[in-house]
């Protein structure tokens, strides 16, 4: 009886918690696909993607960084013992310009749609799940 009361009181006082945090809007992959190295200018990139979150001077060259992130948190509060899991994925685009502000290279990673709620012991982000989520996002193919 005593054990049952202790267990019942512990579980009746336990709770779950979830949280979600977003920084910037996800980057539109279909717009990124319109960038053409050798012809697109820095002005055109800013017109299409907006203001970058960071600018890095690289000698004569310059790089603009665009990013967005989603963090999902899940927790189990058992009063004395608490567990929390946090998963963060980002969209990132780096565009590189020459000294004439013409796009020379760009790299893109789109992953905010892969973010998942998961407790510490849960194994998430297997390849098939990522592929399924990628297929639902326009402009993203197996990134």
């Amino acid at each position: 009886m005593l054990r049952q009361i202790i267990c019942a009181s512990l579980f009746s006082l336990s709770s779950c918690a979830i949280g979600r945090q977003e920084i910037n809007s996800p980057i539109d992959a279909t717009i990124v696909a319109t960038l053409k190295p050798g012809t697109t200018t820095a002005k055109e990139v800013v017109e299409r993607l907006g203001a970058p979150t960071d600018i890095v001077q690289l000698g004569r060259r310059v790089a603009y960084r665009y990013d967005a992130s989603v963090t999902k948190s899940a927790g189990l509060v058992l009063i004395l013992f608490n567990m929390f899991g946090q998963d963060t994925r980002t969209d990132r685009v780096f565009v590189f310009f020459d000294e004439k502000d013409v796009l020379t290279h760009y790299g893109a990673t789109f992953a905010v749609h892969r973010t998942q709620y998961a407790l510490p012991w849960q194994n998430v982000h297997d390849a098939s799940d990522n592929a399924e989520r990628d297929a639902k996002r326009p402009g993203v193919n197996g990134q």
């Binding site: 009063i79 004395l80 608490n82």
Partner: peptide, 24 residues
């Protein structure tokens, strides 16, 4: 006393376990 124990004890001791996953 037993029922209040889980409420009072956290003010003394808490153990946490967390996992953090950032990027692949």
């Amino acid at each position: 006393l037993l029922l209040s124990l889980p409420i009072l004890t956290p003010s003394c001791l808490q153990v946490g376990f967390g996992a953090s996953r950032n990027e692949e």
